[in-house]
């Protein structure tokens, strides 16, 4: 069955096991163009595995992934580990990704605010600079779908806010679908349309709550940050033990948005 027009990718009942450990079980995830989906979950919850399945780097044990025809995917990996002996400037690094000169390297760099880095050695970049360069590289391919794996790891707080603002602008300008993985449970993009909480299965998913105008929070990042940041009142409706098994399951309906949204509503008092 062909996907609906705006649908970029649709993962259906994805399961994945490795060495008899269940990493993912019965995960459904669909991403449309112009949509930002943020995937959150604790370490080892299967976020990266799910992203790799979405990217087509990994075949699921069960279930299948449908892609739009000729889907062009931009991938921003967590980090690069380039051998120091490989002399590579940022411009040359970007040149490697350029397929049909759909976008000029200078334009991609200026879009992510990294024009001045063009001639820097790729090994000399800071974490935040590298993320921008990786993002520029993904943009060069004019992606329909952009997948970012923990893009703000090792970036300081204000840097994260800036980066998320940038992601929002990219969505507005290019109209691509964006899947962001985040280990940070409290800080997600305001531009996020949907937050999906994963812990081997989808715990809950829904629209992020609006920012709580906490005075301390605003003092830290200025009134502007409120517009760009969302605090997702993250409340599990059940708990997991170390193996990811559900311990308590009171009144618990799995997955569907309505149930979890009802649960989240009104839950604004949880920020620390």
């Amino acid at each position: 069955m062909p996907l609906a027009d705006s649908m970029l990718i649709k993962a259906d009942r994805i399961a994945f096991s490795y060495s008899e450990r269940t990493i993912l079980d019965g995960v459904d995830l669909a991403i449309s163009s112009n949509e930002i989906v943020t995937l959150i979950g604790p370490n080892g919850s299967g976020k990266t595995t799910l992203a790799r399945i979405i990217l087509g780097l990994l075949a699921p044990s069960q279930g299948h992934v449908e892609r739009k025809r000729n889907l062009s995917v931009g991938y921003v990996p967590q980090r690069l580990s380039i051998d120091d002996n490989l002399p590579l400037t940022v411009a040359r690094f970007l040149h490697l990704a350029q397929r049909r000169k759909e976008m000029r390297i200078e334009d991609a760099l200026s879009e992510v605010g990294a024009s001045r880095l063009a001639n820097a050695g790729i090994g000399s970049l800071s974490g935040g600079e590298l993320q921008r360069v990786l993002l520029a590289r993904a943009l060069l391919r004019r992606p329909d779908l952009l997948v970012l794996d923990e893009p703000t790891q090792g970036v300081d707080f204000s840097g994260q806010i800036e980066f998320y603002g940038l992601i929002g602008r990219i969505r507005d300008q290019h109209g691509c679908g964006i899947l962001t993985i985040s280990h940070d449970l409290h800080l997600v993009m305001a531009a996020t349309d949907r937050v999906v909480c994963l812990n081997h299965h989808i715990c809950c998913s829904g629209a992020p709550e609006s920012v709580r105008r906490h005075p301390e929070y605003l003092a830290l990042f200025g009134p502007d940050a409120a517009e760009r940041l969302a605090v997702y009142a993250h409340h599990h409706d059940h708990s997991h033990d170390l193996a990811g098994e559900i311990i308590t399951s009171h009144n618990h309906e799995h997955g569907p948005r309505e149930a979890t949204e009802a649960h989240h509503r009104g839950d604004h008092n949880t920020q620390t």
Partner: peptide, 17 residues
């Protein structure tokens, strides 16, 4: 050359591309 260089830089990225 170009493909090998891309793989050397980041194998998964190259695969995804």
């Amino acid at each position: 050359w170009r493909a090998l260089l891309a793989i050397t830089v980041h194998e998964e990225l190259a695969r995804a591309e």
